[in-house]
């Protein structure tokens, strides 16, 4: 509990740092000094606070989603971006953009969720069909499925001259976040709360169908709830900020090494670590080439893939 409070404090410190980074002059002094147009306050309210909130919510939600995805697939090395979920969601966005260009962001999100749900369900379906020889087959299958879906999406995007927009959706980027353009993320925050309430169910489901049935729970129902959470959170995050790769893979696995798999205990840790990780990566991306920005997807990709490699190489040490 004390450690958790410390971790929360660390995330708050990162969030405060994140608020004061940027080209515009926003510092504690400029906020307090009276100026005629209150420019600093305006920037803070319209750009900085929404951006930091978006980072915290999407980071924690994607990390928790990664954990649930790993339970659904019963494999440690999957997350929405290695299971076809993200690709399916972006296909959904393309479909809405083409067929109903005037759709609201919420409408886009719903269609993207439906596609993400279908893509993830297809992935789980394929997993049931193939005999699994090694734990690494599962993420490979997911990557291939994602590749196939992405190829279809890219083809139509190319034909319809939407490649650039597609690329923009697929690369996580928080620089466009402004007040009025991130609020959808609160849906994923709500879903994270749902995941925490159902934490025991997910922990039991992680032990397999027979265990779950023995304890009197409906395995399918838990799986369906997980599927809905994964798809909706992914869709919301892809629609608002784009894809953040590796996050859902690295964070839950690192937390698991230390605290294990009792989700009642680990979900707060996964959420805080996810938020902290994304905040830190975003700060790096904004500072490295100051005053320019590197998209967060790139920073997370670089750091995350290094951590992922580390986890893969030491996997034999803890995979039972």
């Amino acid at each position: 509990m004390k450690q958790l409070a410390l971790a929360a404090a660390a995330v708050i410190v990162l969030a405060v740092i994140s608020l004061f980074i940027g080209v515009s002059d926003v510092t504690p002094q400029s906020l307090l000094s009276p100026s005629p147009d209150d420019r600093a306050v305006q920037v803070l309210l319209i750009s900085r606070i929404p951006r930091t909130l978006a980072l915290v919510i999407s980071g924690s939600a994607m990390a928790v989603t990664g954990m649930i995805m790993q339970i659904l697939a019963r494999n440690r090395f999957v997350e929405p971006s290695t299971a076809g979920t993200v690709e399916a969601a972006s296909m959904g966005i393309l479909v809405v953009t083409v067929l109903a260009p005037g759709a609201s962001v919420f409408g886009k999100m719903l269609v993207a969720s439906a596609f993400a749900l279908a893509g993830t369900a297809l992935f789980l379906r394929i997993l049931q069909q193939i005999p699994l020889r090694s734990v690494l087959v599962v993420p490979l299958v997911g990557l291939m499925l994602g590749g196939v879906i992405n190829a279809i999406t890219t083809f139509f995007a190319y034909r319809l001259d939407l490649l650039q927009s597609l690329n923009a959706w697929m690369t996580g980027n928080f620089s466009g976040i402004l007040r009025g353009r991130y609020e959808l993320l609160w849906i994923s925050f709500a879903l994270m709360v749902v995941a925490y309430i159902a934490a025991d169910r997910f922990t039991v489901a992680g032990m397999g169908q027979d265990f779950t049935t023995n304890l009197g729970m409906n395995y399918r129902r838990v799986m369906t709830l997980g599927l809905i959470i994964v798809s909706m959170v992914t869709a919301v995050v892809v629609v608002t900020v784009g894809m953040i790769p590796f996050l859902g893979l690295v964070v839950p696995n690192l937390v698991r090494l230390i605290f294990g798999d009792n989700l009642r205990r680990t979900v707060p840790w996964i959420a805080l670590s996810g938020a902290g990780f994304v905040l830190a990566c975003d700060i790096i991306g904004r500072v490295v080439r100051y005053p320019y920005e590197i998209p967060i997807g790139v920073v997370v990709g670089v750091i995350g893939s290094a951590l992922f490699l580390y986890l893969l190489l030491r996997r034999n040490a803890y995979v039972a």
Binding site: V204, G216, D261, Y318, A320
Partner: peptide, 18 residues
């Protein structure tokens, strides 16, 4: 052959879930 990393106490406590 559990993939789950639970403590013995947590596992046994789940026996009370019903």
């Amino acid at each position: 052959h559990l993939g789950s990393r639970l403590t013995v106490r947590d596992l046994v406590t789940f026996g009370r879930y019903p």
